[in-house]
Nucleic acid binder design. Structure first.
Lengths: 332, 332
DNA sequence: TTGACATATGTCAACGTTGACATCAGCCGT
DNA sequence: ACGGCTGATGTCAACGTTGACATATGTCAA
């Protein structure tokens, strides 16, 4: 900036005025400044500006467990377009689902003076330490899973209700033995909630809960094996409920490999090619982009001074019957 | 920091020394400082630090067309883990495939003094204006598509070779009329390259090129319609080559809807559930995470002072025969 | 002509941090 | 006892920018 000023023969302050449309500047001066700016390829230094005006950085930090997972990618996309509409930049980090990385990312973001934090917490995390920041008025919103040890805004899917609806759907088609394929640590919020929904649905239908019908795998292949184990039971399930996208893919994979087109399946979270599968996959669809957008709106409201109590936003799910969930149980 | 200093009864400089493990500090002082840091929840201000030391921000900016697209999401993931391993933070923005947004994101990133820029250029972009920054030594790497009007590093898939191999694969199975389903503007680099690969393969096999066999759609549904148009030709193709993931999904969709299991299909870019499709989808797989990682390595090398000429890195593709690409043409 | 006022620009300090250099106390060897 | 060294801390200025306030020039009404 000083360079530009020297080039034009004015003070830095005048250049600043031109660039920020602050105070009065003679038309001719303005033009000469702009010319110099272009000539020198000057870029204002946001860091210095922020420091001077004591403002936080016009960026929000988002922490997700994994960028590769389309679910989180889409969430991030939803957040990004919403915050960008307000001139904010998005900074993303992925925690690889570990509390340590999450911690260090939070520290980095705080050191960068982001305007807000959005976090999809890792399974093992604890967010007590963020209390100071929250009190200081930094908007913090948790996504997909609520905070642990901290009263803060969160935006989550209607996991329990959705899972209940999905399982009830299978029950309605006559299934009485319904397997549950989960992945991730069983302590994970979403896993727990969906499992509760599963049990709710069984309970409401007067069906017994059988521990043997619950299997877990931490990735697609593991979920496939989990599914296989269920199919090989002496008294196997006639229908399956897969608790997330990886579990669904694993289940689809296992059923396909085993050549079993007679087992009903409902997955939680939609898949891109669900409708061309054989049979087309019935899912309880989430709205990841919507979740991101809702969370971003919350953040923006907080930035605008909304100081109301922390709230939890439930993003509804939608049952999309496509075929796999409408297969009847085999006649006995 | 001043607060911490006051609390302990020392100067800010001493606190700085403790925090940066700079110069000698008495053990007792160090402990008292650390205690005060914890007590006050002090977070160093990275912006001020960067400004003082005149360093660029320890962040690299990445611009992708769309966060929701798993291809770019995975690329971003590859970049992120590589740069984080070096203590750098990733800032992401999406350009929605428009030159304007791309421009404004670049400006924002430059104003933030990122250490490096990584760009998946939008179709219409022009990067001449980045010449100044490149000369100034800012590492700039283009991903998936090369820069326009600028000599800069780029990392791209072996599009032409991959497409050629995919189409040659179909030829090897006896196909003589092979349709091309592309999406995006036909001017897009990847689209062009893959199309050239397609023509190469035809030429090498001595097959005529038929303009009627080339169709385009800009998203999944459009690609499905494009596919349908091909199938309805008087002299329809017996095999299809889909030039990217959306085109593949569209083609799969269309074939499935039309109940056509006799048309061979090879897609460019792998899909999550490719192997459970019916028939399982043969693809020319790209390595998005690998691309991101390679690009990040390039950036890191540049940051380490590598001043060699701009280079273009080709990331190889891999043909994964799964069934759909090995269907023979119907006997005539 | 005066002074009140608007316009155009300049001066200075400060944001939080850290390099360069200064200060001071204690200890060593001679 | 003295110079020199080491360790521990302090002082000051500067990074690039902008708020607060000052200055200079011109315009216009009384």
């Amino acid at each position: 900036m000083t360079d530009v000023a020297r080039e034009v023969g004015v003070t830095a302050k005048t250049v600043s005025r031109v660039l920020n449309d602050d105070g009065p500047v003679a038309v001719e001066t303005r033009e000469r400044v702009m010319a110099a700016v272009r000539k020198l390829g000057y870029q204002p230094n946001l860091m210095a500006r922020n420091m001077r005006v004591g403002a936080r950085d016009a960026a929000v930090g988002l922490i997700i467990p994994e960028m590769g997972n389309p679910f989180f990618g889409t969430v991030a996309g939803g957040v990004e377009s919403a915050v960008r509409a307000r001139g904010l930049t998005l900074i993303v980090g992925s925690s690889s689902e570990t509390a340590e990385l999450e911690q260090s990312l939070i520290a980095t973001f705080l050191a960068r003076r982001v305007s807000a934090l959005m976090i999809v917490p890792s399974a093992a995390g604890d967010h007590r330490h963020l209390r100071t920041e929250r009190v200081a008025g930094l908007p913090i919103v948790f996504l997909d899973r609520p905070a642990v040890g901290l009263r803060a805004d969160s935006v989550v899917s209607a996991n329990r209700e959705g899972a209940r609806a999905g399982v009830a759907h299978l029950v309605a088609y006559g299934h009485r033995r319904i397997g549950f394929v989960g992945d991730q640590p069983a302590t994970l919020y979403t896993r727990r909630e969906r499992f509760l929904g599963y049990r709710d649905a069984l309970g409401r239908a007067g069906l017994p809960f059988d521990r043997a019908l619950v299997e877990t795998g931490h990735d697609q292949e593991a979920a496939a094996h989990a599914t296989l184990r269920l199919l090989e039971l002496a008294d196997p399930p006639t229908a399956l409920f897969a608790a997330n996208n990886l579990a669904s893919m694993g289940a689809v994979l296992a059923l396909s490999r085993a050549g079993r087109r007679d087992v009903a399946l409902v997955g939680f979270d939609d898949l891109p090619l669900a409708e061309v599968l054989d049979p087309p996959l019935t899912v309880v669809a989430q709205d990841p982009a919507g979740m991101g957008a809702v969370a971003a709106q919350l953040v923006l409201a907080r930035l605008d001074g909304d100081r109301s109590r922390a709230r939890r936003s439930l993003v509804p799910t939608r049952l999309l019957p496509r075929g796999s969930g409408e297969l009847p149980p085999p006649p006995r």
